[in-house]
Each structure stands twice: as structure tokens, then as C-alpha cells.
Write a protein that binds this DNA or RNA. Structure first.
Length: 853
RNA sequence: GGGCGCGUAGCUCAGUGGGAGAGCGCUCGCCUCACACGCGAGAGGUCGUUGGUUCGAACCCAACCGCGCCCACCA
């Protein structure tokens, strides 16, 4: 090592991530390691399509966790010599992005309406050019080894072509159709949204009971509703067909209060006779249930509430123009005045809200584009049933299958301007509808001028084709041939249906195969107090802040270590553990690199402890690699940590220090070799610090990012050495505990004598006992070691210590005796378990006897 | 209303049939020539409750009590 580098290494006693991360990342990019050639087959290669973050997004903890997992696997596979591609890109995120730019416009006193569609869309593009790469830069901070040269965007020209191809094909197959149907209207985004974008929340409303007089009778039907304003659109009253109370009324009519409309009384099973009075007002225009009933019975559909959330002309002159809330108050007041209001009571129920805008959903009927899903779902169900797509953890397989089997048509049109404008053209004169991948010249039927559909597609329509559209589909590209199907996908469970299921469906339908072999549904990292991490709650923790403070490696390690199959609270302690580990790696490496002789790194064991550490290392390599392969990141991280810290640093380095300082060739070679393997093993989890240390390693020929990932060498496993050294470690521990308990001065070396075989050399050194002492009276025994009297130790403390140990032993002996006295245990437990118990009893009894002298 | 999951040391979490673990925090002792983001030694737990199965249960079964999530058109 050149002197100036040696000096730098010597001086730097603390690893400073901020000083190295940007430089290392630039080197990786410079090396082109993240940009594989499109060669080989998907089976030979390893590829991942990143869940595309919103262009408006900033890296949050979910991205950081997801990214850490993907990067760990991508890096491991790259190091294994596979062509590893991690496709990166962003999603145009229709509603979210449009909302951001509309907000800007509002601040300027303008609006998208004022700008007009074309200028507005241009404005969003300008916004995207300026801010859209933010999150990509943030992924770099994390160390994500994505292919930044193949970055994609869901509104790229080629991507749009893929989306249009898919739409056209689905239309030609008859899956896509246009219909007047009940949709979830989001007054916030002024658009329909799909069922999956609706979240139900418990809300306390008032349940109003209203009397509807029966025509030509003095009877009334009392109906209950939380939304009295919708009565203005009532077109029937329904009762259960088996409800004897009302059997005679079925077929007659009620008169709708305030409006005067005649409402037929109909019978339908959907009505629960137990609820309220058993009579249900039917509003096909504003309630999904009533809509179904209405279609079944051929009822009139009245729209009393418009898309703007205000009452329409249909609501009657008295209420038209009011907001729904105003209308509710007015209707209640009018009913009260007319004496129709029977009761008002508080009522808690679940109410749909828009996941996007947070506003209460207004169910209403409108003309939308839908996609029928059952035909697409069938092979996607089969693929998961047959494990051609494996879902981990396995309980999510069932959740997926159950949802898929109940799948309903998907409302794919959105009343937005930002997105894929639906590739449908209308000819007004001849009422022709043309679906095409490219804008037609004119109407084929009459030659008239065409008008393109105003609506855009649901953002998820384009994300559904992400894994193959990013690789160049519909063209037959080298990327598609080399990397599709992708290897795996990590995802949050909340988008299992919204996204994952749809990718499987479109992948099979259009790309001819499932989009990925494995889906790993990761846990959710909650805020420190157990609430959801959310921007609106202010509970989010910024991963970039954590990186600034502790380094990317620390955050990555921490996130992987805290992840598990169940949801967990964010743990600062785990991130600090990662930071401490990075620092420990740095310092242990300094010890080895600065003191090792100039030798070729290789396993060159001379003693049992060398064979011990080599064996432990190989076991760790096998276990950590295996855990990563099965997506058990938490145990991979913990396993690597404990091997490195406890076994390698706390024991082996301490044991071999004298040999290392002497410049012994064998231990130098062994240490350098072990260090190389440890660095490579940890690189997928902590890429920066390991790469930085690698700069100083004599084996270095290129970057660690493309160094080979270690494979366990079974010839180095040595159970005997493991057992022997383990025994020495135990003895050292007991001796240290003994001296602590008798409060022997820390620096003192105490005299002792070993009975029988001399303990391994390190035992005395690390516990500060000298076994060479002759003469002197034994004052205590620790295993086969007799501790001799000396001025350093206090006799009463020794006596107390002995008494305490005897107490421990008595309880152990009693436990073992009790167990062995149990006839059933001896008779029915497996022989080796019983034998083990006998051995323990013998061991403890012997020690107790020794101490009782 | 259905489904899934969780209740283990002060905190955050591992452990899923044979003597309770980790990290952090806490106590005591150490600036020991890699690291005080460190080293050594400790204290701390009737494994939510109650029954059951078993020679043996934190672990399997049942019920109950708490908590969380997903799905669902009872007004």
C-alpha cells in the first residue's frame, strides 16, 4: 500500500459516509456496471422492474425499504455474474400530478380551464422536466443500482404506443366497452375513480326516518336514510318479498314527499326486514345498491346531484344549484315542516372516500369506459394457482386468488387532462365510433371530421403493462428477449390488486408470459408511535434525512433488519446498529489491512481457532446467501452482523492479534481472505462502506460491485474445531465473570492452575489469568481451572461468589433430577433427549461436589 | 359481516414442541497500541387470559380479552 494511502487509513478512526458515498456512486456509474447488455435468456439473467414512483413523489420510507430489498437482490445476482437489470422509471400519476400543477395555477390566480387543455398539458410537461427527476436522484442517494440509462416514463412516446396497442386489442376482443353506469365520482378530482381507489371510513351521520304516504290510504311507509337529499331522486320503495307486514302494499304506490312523484312499491330480496321498518327508499341514480335494484326492476334513473356536487334541475327548482350539503339541510327542514320527519338519530356507518382527494365519494351514473376482467383474470388465476407466479409470504396467495375470483369490471376512464387520452374518435354526423392506435384521417363511413374522446385512461391502466412496456414492447426488442419475464417484484400489499394483479393479467395476455416469477409482499414500516407513516398526519420519517445523518448503508441495513413478515415500527436503534456496523467494518478492516504481512490472501489455518473462524465464516456465507434468496432480509442482516461483530471481531481478532502484530504470514493470509469474503457478503446490504474498504484491499482488481459473491466452501467446515474453540470461549467468559464478581482489579493478572489439559492459549490472555502459577492454595474452581489465592482478590467476595454458584448448580441439579424421576418422560421422550438430560445432571453434580469441598 | 395478522425483557422485535434470545436502554468496571458509533461483566421476562392435547407448550387446539390491516352494496 502506498504510504499516503496507509497514512489516510491510519488516521481515519471513524467511517464518514458523507465523504465517500457520492464518489463511490459516481465510480459505479462510470464503470457502467448497472447497464447490462441485453444478452442471454431471462433464465440466465436477473431482472427487476422497479415499482415506478410518481413523478411528483419524493423518496419516502416505503421506497427506501422496497429499494433496499430490490438492490440487495440485484447486487447479489450481479455479483454472481448474472446480467442484472433493474429497470427504473416514473409514473405520470394522472390525478396527483394534475393536482400539483393545478395548485400552482391557483396560486397564480389562474386555472386549467383558463389555460385550456393543450396549454395545461404543456405546462405539466414543463413541470415534469423541471422536477420529475427528483426522485430518481434520490434513489441514487440510497445506492440503488438501477439502470439509469434505461430510465422510462409512462407517457414516453413509445410507452403511449404500447398503451394504445393494449387498449385497441382489448377493445377488439370486446372487453372494453362504454356504458352509462354507476361510478364512484370523486368531487375532488372531478373524475370517476375505480373501486380500488375508494377507501371506506367510519363516519357518524344522522339517520333520518321519513314517512312516505301510501297512495289512496292513510298508511305510511317509513324509510330510513343518512342522505335525505337523495330522496329527490327516489323512484321506488322496496320491501322484502317475505315481509308479511307489507305484502299487501307491493304493487301499490307511495307519494314522494316534497316532490309528489308516484313511487311503485316493489319487492326485492336485498331488503333486510330487520333493518329499521323494513322499507327501503330506492335511489338508482345515487346509490350503488339501488342502482342494481333499479336495473333489475327497470326503474327510472334520476340524477339529482351533478358532477359538480350541486343539485341539478332534476332535484326541482327549490333545490337546484344548492350543494348536496345545503340541499340536505333544506330537505330536512322542509320535511320537518310537512311533518314527514319521523326520527333523527346518530348513526355510525362506513362511507366511501376518495383515496386520491380525500373527498367523500358521490355515487352517480355517468357515461364511462369499462374493461371486463373475467377473461383476463382466468389465466392470471391459473398462473398463481400453479405457482408460475409465486407469492411470498404464502397467505397473500389466497388473498389474491379470492379477489381475482370476484373481480368486477374496471372503470378505466378518468375525466382528467393529464394522461393517456383514450384512443377513441367519434364522428358526430354519422355517430361512428373509431378505436385506433393512431389518429385516423377522418371518418371512414362518411368522411366527416373526427373528435377524440376527452377522457384519459386510469393511471393504473398504463402501469399494468410496466414490466414489458419498459422493455420495448410491442416491438420485439433484445431487452424483451433477454429480460422478460422479470425475476421478481417487491411490493406493498396495498397495491396487490391495484397493480400486481393487473400486471399478471396483461403480462399473460400481451407479452405471452407472466411478468415475474416471484412476488414478495413486504411488511409496512410504521411511524415510531405505531401510526401509519403519512405526509398528512405528519408522521413520515424522511429517508434522506436518515441518510444525511447516518449514511445510506446504515439506513439500508436498518430497514432490512427491521423488516419482517409482520408490520413493524420504525426503529432508530436498528439504523444506528447499521451505522455502528459500518464503523466497525471500517475499523476492523484497518486493523487487518494495516498490520497484515504482504501475502496472497488465502485460508491458511495453523491452529484450531483459525479452522474455527473459517468454518464459522462458511456457515455464515451459506446462511446469509440463503436468507437473501428466500427474501428473509431481516435474518440475513442479523446473521451477517452477529458473525462479523461477535465472532470475527470480539473473538477471532482478539485471539490472533499477537500473531498479526508479529507479521505471521498464515494469519495475515487468512484474515485478508476472510475480510474479502465478508466485504463481498455484506456488499448487497451495505454497498458503500464495503466498496470503500475494498479500495484498500490487496486483492482488489476492480470494483466490489462486480466482484464475485461468496459461495460457501464446505471443505472448510470443521465441527471439531468449532466445538473446541467454543469451549475455550465459554471458559474465558466464565473466568471473566468470576473476576468481575469478586471485583478483581481490571488490569491484574490472577494466578491459576489448570487441572488436566491446559486451556487454549487465548483463554488466559483474554481473561487475564496466568496458568503457569505453582503453589498457592486454590480458593475457587471454574470448571477445570483452579484459581489460586493472591493479594488481588478479596476472600469474602470469593466466598459469596462460591455460594451463589452452588445455589445455581443446586437448582440445575434439582431440575434435571425432577425430569429424570418422571417415569413418563424417561419412557416416552426420545432417547437422545433423555440422554442429554442425564449428561447435564452428571456435569452439574460433579461441579457442585467439587465446590462443596 | 367475512378474512388475515399481532399480543415474548423498560422500548422495538426475533424465536414456532425439549433448559427464554437480539439490538437499544439500564447497572458495574475499563480511554486494553482497530473501533468510546468501543471493550468486558451484569440486572431484567408467571412468553395477553383461561381451558385442552402432550412425558413435556412461548410454540399445537379451543374460547375469551386487547390491537392492527384487508375485503364487503344493510339503507
Amino acid at each position: 500500500m502506498p504510504d499516503e494511502r496507509r497514512d489516510a487509513l491510519e488516521k481515519k478512526t471513524r467511517y464518514e459516509p458523507a465523504e465517500v458515498e457520492a464518489r463511490i456512486f459516481a465510480e459505479w456509474i462510470e464503470g457502467g456496471y448497472f447497464h447490462p447488455e441485453a444478452e442471454g435468456t431471462p433464465e440466465q439473467n436477473f431482472s427487476v422492474a422497479i415499482p415506478p414512483p410518481n413523478v411528483t413523489g419524493a423518496l419516502h420510507m416505503g421506497h427506501a425499504l422496497n429499494g433496499s430489498m430490490q438492490d440487495a437482490l440485484v447486487r447479489m445476482n450481479r455479483m454472481r455474474g448474472r446480467n442484472a437489470l433493474w429497470v427504473l422509471g416514473t409514473d405520470h400519476a394522472g390525478i396527483a400530478t394534475q393536482a400539483v400543477v393545478e395548485k400552482e395555477l391557483r396560486a397564480e390566480g389562474s386555472s386549467r380551464q383558463e389555460l385550456g387543455r393543450e396549454a395545461f398539458v404543456e405546462r405539466i410537461w414543463a413541470w415534469k422536466e423541471e422536477y420529475g427527476s427528483r426522485i430518481v436522484e434520490q434513489y441514487k442517494r440510497l445506492g440503488a443500482s438501477c439502470d439509469y440509462e434505461r430510465e422510462r416514463f409512462t407517457l414516453d412516446e413509445d410507452y403511449v404506443r404500447a398503451v394504445y396497442r393494449v387498449f385497441k386489442r382489448l377493445f377488439d376482443k370486446g372487453y372494453i366497452y362504454r356504458d352509462n353506469y354507476m361510478v364512484n365520482w370523486d368531487p375532488g378530482s372531478h373524475s370517476a375513480i375505480s373501486d380500488l381507489e375508494v377507501e371506506n371510513r367510519e363516519v357518524e351521520d344522522t339517520l333520518y326516518s321519513i314517512d312516505y304516504p301510501v297512495e289512496g290510504s292513510d298508511r305510511v311507509l317509513t324509510v330510513a336514510t343518512v342522505r335525505p337529499e337523495t330522496m329527490l331522486a327516489d323512484t321506488a320503495v322496496a320491501v322484502n318479498p317475505d315481509d308479511e307486514r307489507y305484502a299487501d302494499l307491493v304493487g301499490t304506490h307511495c307519494v314522494l314527499p316534497l316532490v309528489g312523484r308516484r313511487l311503485p312499491v316493489i319487492a326485492d330480496e336485498h331488503v333486510d326486514p330487520e333493518f329499521g321498518t323494513g322499507a327501503l327508499k330506492i335511489t338508482p341514480g345515487h346509490d350503488p345498491n339501488d342502482f342494481e335494484i333499479g336495473r333489475k326492476h327497470g326503474l327510472e334513473e334520476i340524477g339529482a346531484i351533478g358532477p359538480d356536487g350541486r343539485m341539478t334541475e332534476e332535484a326541482g327548482e327549490r333545490f337546484a344549484g344548492m350543494t348536496a350539503a345545503e340541499a340536505q339541510a333544506a330537505v330536512v327542514a322542509a320535511l320537518r315542516e310537512e311533518g314527514r320527519l319521523r326520527a333523527e338519530e346518530p348513526y355510525v356507518h362506513s362511507v366511501p372516500f376518495s383515496h386520491r382527494s380525500g373527498e367523500r365519494i358521490e355515487p352517480l351514473i355517468s357515461l364511462q369506459w369499462f374493461c371486463r376482467m373475467d377473461e383476463l383474470a382466468a389465466p392470471a388465476i391459473e398462473a398463481v394457482e400453479a405457482d408460475r407466479v409465486r407469492i411470498t409470504p404464502p397467505q397473500w396467495k389466497r388473498v389474491y386468488l379470492e379477489w381475482m375470483r370476484e373481480i368486477r369490471p374496471w372503470c378505466v376512464s378518468r375525466q382528467l387532462w393529464w394522461g393517456h387520452r383514450i384512443p377513441v374518435w367519434y364522428c358526430d354526423p354519422c355517430e361512428e365510433t373509431i378505436v385506433a392506435e393512431e389518429e385516423p384521417e377522418g371518418c371512414g363511413a362518411c368522411g366527416g371530421e373526427l373528435r377524440q374522446e376527452e377522457d384519459v385512461l386510469d393511471t393504473w391502466f398504463s402501469s399494468a403493462i410496466w414490466p414489458f412496456a419498459t422493455l420495448g414492447w410491442p416491438d420485439d426488442t433484445p431487452e424483451l428477449r433477454a429480460f422478460y419475464p422479470t425475476s421478481f417484484l417487491t411490493t406493498a400489499r396495498e397495491i396487490l390488486f391495484l397493480w400486481v394483479a393487473r400486471m399478471i393479467m396483461t403480462g399473460i395476455e400481451f407479452a405471452g408470459d407472466v411478468p415475474f416469477r416471484d412476488v414478495y409482499v413486504h411488511s409496512v414500516i410504521q411511524a415510531r408511535d405505531g401510526r401509519r407513516m403519512s405526509k398528512s398526519l405528519g408522521t413520515g420519517i424522511d429517508p434522506l434525512g436518515e441518510i444525511d445523518q447516518h449514511g445510506a448503508d446504515a439506513l439500508r441495513f436498518g430497514l432490512l433488519a427491521m423488516s419482517s413478515t409482520q408490520d413493524v415500527r420504525y426503529s432508530d436503534a436498528k439504523v444506528q446498529q447499521g451505522r455502528d456496523l459500518a464503523n466497525k467494518l471500517w475499523n476492523a478492516s484497518r486493523l487487518v489491512l494495516l498490520n497484515a504481512a504482504e501475502v496472497e490472501p488465502a485460508p491458511r489455518p495453523l491452529h484450531a481457532e483459525d479452522r474455527w473462524i473459517l468454518s464459522r465464516l462458511e456457515r455464515t456465507i451459506a446462511s446469509v446467501g440463503g436468507k437473501l434468496e428466500e427474501y428473509d432480509f431481516a435474518h440475513a442482516a442479523a446473521g451477517a452482523y452477529s458473525f462479523f461483530w461477535s465472532e470475527l471481531c470480539d473473538w477471532y481478532l482478539e485471539i490472533v492479534k499477537p500473531r498479526l502484530y508479529e507479521g505471521e504470514a498464515e494469519v495475515s493470509a487468512t484474515l485478508l481472505w476472510a475480510l474479502e469474503r465478508v466485504l463481498a457478503l455484506l456488499h448487497p446490504i451495505m454497498p458503500f462502506v464495503t466498496e470503500e474498504i475494498w479500495n484498500y484491499h490487496p486483492s482488489r482488481r476492480g470494483h466490489l460491485a462486480v466482484h464475485s459473491f461468496p459461495t460457501a466452501d464446505e471443505s472448510l467446515l470443521d465441527p471439531e474445531a468449532e466445538a473446541e474453540v467454543q469451549e475455550g470461549i465459554e471458559l474465558t467468559r466464565r473466568l471473566r465473570a468470576w473476576r468481575d464478581l469478586v471485583e478483581a482489579p481490571a488490569a491484574s493478572v490472577l494466578p491459576a492452575r489448570a487441572e488436566g489439559a491446559e486451556p487454549r492459549e487465548f483463554v488466559g490472555r483474554l481473561s487475564r489469568f496466568s496458568f503457569g502459577a505453582d503453589g498457592g492454595d486454590p480458593v475457587a474452581a471454574v470448571g477445570a481451572v483452579k484459581i489460586l489465592a493472591s493479594g488481588e482478590i478479596d476472600a469474602t467476595a470469593v466466598a459469596a461468589r462460591l455460594a451463589a454458584r452452588r445455589e445455581e448448580l443446586r437448582s440445575e441439579v434439582a431440575r434435571a433430577e425432577g425430569k429424570l424421576a418422571n417415569q413418563s418422560f424417561v419412557a416416552r421422550a426420545p432417547a437422545e433427549v433423555v440422554e442429554e438430560e442425564r449428561e447435564k445432571l452428571a456435569r452439574y453434580s460433579a461441579e457442585l461436589e467439587e465446590l462443596s469441598e
